[in-house]
Structure formats: structure tokens, C-alpha cells
Simulated scan of single mutants.
Amino acid sequence: MDEPLFLLIAGLIAGAMNALAGGGSFVTLPALIATGVPSVSANATSSAALYPGGAASAWVYRDGLGTVCGVPLVPTLLATLLGGLVGSMLLLATPSALFDRAMPWLLLLATLTLMFGPRVGVLLRPRLVLGASAILTLQFLLGVYGGYFGGAVGLMMMAAWSLLEGADIKALNAPRTLMVTAANTVAILCFAVARAIQWKAALVVGLGAIAGGYAGAHLGRRLNPKLVRGATLILSAAITVRFFILAYF
């Protein structure tokens, strides 16, 4: 297959995945590496390429924005932006091998939280009352993760929020797309300054991601929440297995 067409299709699929449940970078990152882009640069390029698609999804979901676990949107957004800045700077200073070993365990934690979060949440929410400071600290850490790598950060946000608030996954799509886009904004600025992005490849993937993100967001607003949850669990499990294979086999 022609390389630009291959990257365009990867961006289209990833954009739709991000709009529906997250995890689109696990399509674009291997695709970029397959075309010869070094892994560190592929990570930065993938973040830049998926940014427009995420922004398009956030725009479609804008009517559904509200508080996050009872905390107003603006301070939550600021915590995410700050976390994204810290995470992107850490990525540029950390050996990739260390991160490759840690990632599967983080994804496993997110998958288990998504799988058992609603049941555990019913038991914990009456006993576990977190203030705004604790929730903002959690969101800052999620922003750090988003800026550091970004893979499945949307899944991790939904896992944490559903555990604390008990909202269904479909209702969390609006704040998820906004917060992921926020973390990516500052991360991409850092990557651009460090000249870690291959812009030609990012442009091709990004064009596909815009179309996929817009279409996926419209589809996500019409799908049954149970279907979205089921698809999210399958996707999360597949991503986790994929990263364990990459890291240890």
C-alpha cells in the first residue's frame, strides 16, 4: 500500500477510536514506526497528528461539558494543562526503555478500573468523599500521563471518573475529549520546540484523524451506553495485551 494512503487510513481509524473510547495512538504509533519513523519521534508525531481530530471531537461534544466529579471545568482544565506540561518535559528527559516497561502495568490498572469500577464505586462512594483538591491532584497526574505518552489516557480518565462519580461512559465523552486535547496542547508545543515531530507524516495522519474524529463523535452521541462500555472494555483489554507483548516478548 502507498505510504501516504497507509498513514491516512491509520489516522482515520485512530480519530474515530479516540472519539468513541480513546486509544487511537495505538493505531498511529505502530503505523508511523512501520514507515521508518524512530519510536521517540513517532510518539511525538502521533500526538501532533491526532491533535486536530481530538479538537474536532471536543467541539462536537461541547454541549455536554460540565463539572468533572463535581469540580468546575476551569480548574480541572488548568490542572490538566499543567500536568501535560510536566509530562511532556519528563518524556523528553526519560529513556524510552523505562517507560516501555511501566506502560503495560498502567494500562492493566486502567482496564481493571474500567471493568470493576462501577461495582467498586457503589461500595466506595458512600465511604470515600474526595474534596476538590484531591480530585484536581488526580487530574494533574492524569495530565502528566497524557503529556508523557498519551496512549489510552482517555480510557484512564474515564476509569477514574466513573469510579468517583458513577456516571456512564457515554456521558464522560465530552470532558474526556476536552481534557485529552488540553494535555496534548502543551505536550505538542514542547515536542515542537525540541524538534521531535516529523511534520509531513503528522499532516497526513492528522487529515485522516480529523475526519475520523468528527464522524466518531457524532456516532458516539447516538450509541447505547452499554455498547460503548463494552467496546471500551474490549479495546482497553486489547491495548493492554498489546503493550505486554511489546514490552516483554
Rank of each mutant, 00 (worst) to 15 (best):
L233M: 14
V144C: 15
T35F: 05
G230Y: 04
L219G: 11
F99Q: 01
A160E: 01
P72S: 11
V193F: 14
L90K: 01
R127Q: 12
M179Q: 05
L142G: 13
P75K: 11
P72E: 10
R222S: 04
A134W: 13
L235P: 04
L109K: 02
V74A: 14
I234F: 15
P126A: 07
L108V: 09
S236R: 10
S41V: 01
A183T: 10
L114W: 02
L91E: 06
L235H: 00
K200L: 11
M157T: 01
L207N: 01
V241N: 01
A58S: 14
G54A: 04
L138A: 09
S47Y: 04
A34M: 11
L172W: 00
L223E: 03
Y248W: 15
I33T: 15
T80N: 08
L77A: 15
A49G: 04
M158N: 04
F26I: 12
G166V: 12
V205H: 10
P38G: 09
G84S: 07
G87C: 08
L108G: 13
A167W: 08
T111H: 00
G24R: 12
L136P: 03
S133R: 12
R119C: 03
M179F: 10
I9T: 04
F149Q: 11
I188T: 08
A10C: 06
G23Y: 00
V129R: 13
G64Q: 11
L8D: 03
K170P: 00
I210S: 10
S57V: 01
A21E: 06
A93T: 13
M1R: 09
I169K: 02
L90Y: 03
S57N: 07
S96D: 13
L233W: 00
T94F: 10
R221A: 11
G87P: 02
A201W: 10
L155R: 02
A14N: 06
F26A: 11
S133D: 05
L65R: 06
G53Y: 01
P30E: 08
V37K: 04
G121E: 06
A196W: 01
F26Y: 08
R62E: 05
G54R: 03
A134E: 10
E165L: 09
A174F: 09
C190R: 14
A49I: 14
G36M: 08
G147I: 14
R222F: 02
G24W: 00
G143F: 13
T111P: 01
V205L: 08
P52H: 05
L233T: 09
E3F: 11
P175N: 08
L203T: 13
G166T: 07
R101I: 08
A247T: 11
V27H: 00
A49M: 09
M115H: 10
P75H: 07
T185P: 03
G70M: 04
S41E: 15
G24K: 09
R176W: 00
V186D: 03
A132R: 09
G23I: 08
A183V: 07
A132Q: 12
A134Y: 05
T113R: 06
P104A: 05
G87E: 06
R221G: 14
L233Y: 00
R222T: 05
M157N: 04
